[in-house]
Amino acid sequence: MKTEQLIELLSTNLEPVRSERTGRALAWAIISGGAGAFGVMLLTVRLRPNVDGAPDIGFLVLKLLFLLSLIGSGAALLSRLIRPGQDGRRLFALVLLPFLAIGLAGVVRLAIARPAAWGSMILGTQWATCLFCIPLFAVVPFAVLIGALRKGAPTNLRSSGAVVGLVAGSLGAVAYAFYCPDDSLPFIALWYGGMVALCTLVGAIIGPRLLRW
């Protein structure tokens, strides 16, 4: 085939295109993926009984703050990664900040606590459930986000996969936070931070194969 032929084909009866479509598809993927994660949580472990109870609401808010800041910077990164030629490199630093903040808070909290209390602070009552549930809840948002990215044109597949993992893991963790009975800073830093980091790693590993176009 001659290239002229292809050009003729592509420009005949050309349809106008809206560029906002790309950003909207991403926003929609984050919302529906988050809803999916929440649904899986309701179907499996259910809401923590006293989720509206006053004493623990502070920790729920803290968990959400940590995770929403990750979702926010992850979404900003994805909106660049999905478009060729846009470099979000400076934004990557933004993703590290919430991890550093929660890690530091966890360490400080341990430092001022009695060593005898460290075990219960770090392991809580349900570290194993957390370990299992966050990746499980991340599956739906991960799939939806990969689908949204495939409609765009990511050219850096490794980074795109990693950020999809980050946002999906954070959405999964948001859902888990509504069940999670463990309220301590070291617990959030280690298990929430760790599981989101794990999802990021998995995204970086399998992303390139899923996102190729």
Partner: peptide, 23 residues
């Protein structure tokens, strides 16, 4: 050319065009 055509909605009019093409 085919890739650019089917994914032309990913070009953001506020940005430079050439970097999009070369990416």
């Amino acid at each position: 050319l085919m890739a650019m055509h089917t994914r032309r909605h990913t070009y953001d009019r506020a940005q430079l065009f050439t970097p999009w093409v070369y990416a």
